[in-house]
Design a protein around this nucleic acid. Sequence first.
DNA 1: ACCTGAACACCGTTCAAGT
DNA 2: ACCTGAACACCGTTCAAGT
Lengths: 233, 233
Amino acid sequence: MLKNTKRLQRGEESLSRERIVAAAIDLLDGGGEAALTFRALAQQLATGAGAIYYHVTDKGDLLCAASDTIVLATMAAAAATADATPRQRMGAMALGLFDAIDTHPWLGAALMQAPSQMPMVRILEALGQQGSALGVPPQSLWQLTSALLHYILGVAGQNAANSRAAQAQATQRETFLDTVATAWEQLDAEQFPFTRGIAGQLRAHDDRADFLAGIDLLLAGAGAGAYATTAGK
Amino acid sequence: MLKNTKRLQRGEESLSRERIVAAAIDLLDGGGEAALTFRALAQQLATGAGAIYYHVTDKGDLLCAASDTIVLATMAAAAATADATPRQRMGAMALGLFDAIDTHPWLGAALMQAPSQMPMVRILEALGQQGSALGVPPQSLWQLTSALLHYILGVAGQNAANSRAAQAQATQRETFLDTVATAWEQLDAEQFPFTRGIAGQLRAHDDRADFLAGIDLLLAGAGAGAYATTAGK
DNA sequence: ACCTGAACACCGTTCAAGT
DNA sequence: ACCTGAACACCGTTCAAGT
């Protein structure tokens, strides 16, 4: 069904919010946040820059819609894990988000910019549901979920910044962290003994494992271990 | 001692990194991140936009220097607290950062953008030193400090985004959160039962207290309570 | 050495005009 | 209703030219 008066080529679809969001994700994945431009988007969609505003309010709206597409898929996949305890599903969600941000680094910054919008609400909802199922008492649920959310957001932002920095230097994430570690090791010994000491761990560490360790810390602190006897480690 | 050939008015100082950073902080405090512009900065300093680049590498460098000025003062104040346990000093640092970000909302986003730069390193160092003093075993220190750092960063970013959003709507932070809570209450009951349920708590909650609760969760999870018998609550 | 300010290469967003 | 694309009001950064 054609919505355009203009004759469309075979396989060509009329402009729509979904097509715009899909093209936006392509641009973001390809070249990071800087690559998402209304002009670039218009070119990719073979239309004018102004046409996009007919389907999208804002650049913020666009970023939010792009984020939501990915978050929706990620959370649905994690929630659907069969034969899993609430604790395991919670881990799957956290890990799913971590990986999603790893493959779409722009997602980290996008989530930070709209903390009360749909994508974050979806995450909050999923964490809250698993927390309830875990048996965390209602009075503690707010603090636990918001702490988890803040933590996830912090990791997201950090990863986004790191991959942005790595991209700016045209190096891999790994060699970028190595540069940072070396810089830390050359800090003043009097002022920065601790940072100098852990620089090596920065080089060796496993982002994913550390991320999960933080989630464990929060859940353990909330006493989740007490309710979840079958918690996966 | 004048560095300029040009005759300077009484009280006028030649351009310097410190003067530029101070002016940048003024602009940021006055109008948020959007207000920091090389043109605005040049005007405030009665100079040309290009002159600033003689003292500052980048806009990123400028933001980093501005952040560091505030973080340095904040951490020094918290570390200097007399008659305090390491645990209390840790709380003072976290709270000091929270308040600093509250009065300088742009700081939240700025810290997120440069996670391995000086301002964040200063925070890492301070947390690590207190963690050591607390008696946290060296093997656990990396995970604890990086989890704390991520968490603080997440809260920082969230606060920054909230105050940006409130400013965009020209309302107070409080009425902005009220708007969000109302939106959450109108979400689909089937899909978002948890979020609907805690919307009220979003309205009533105390940011500062929740922030501290998260820190407590992490420290408790790390077993810090075991080493710190005199931990302040 | 330090500063000037015009110029460059971009942005997001708007809007008269078209179909 | 939907699209076009020029125009507007900005950006950060550079650089020849000045002192």
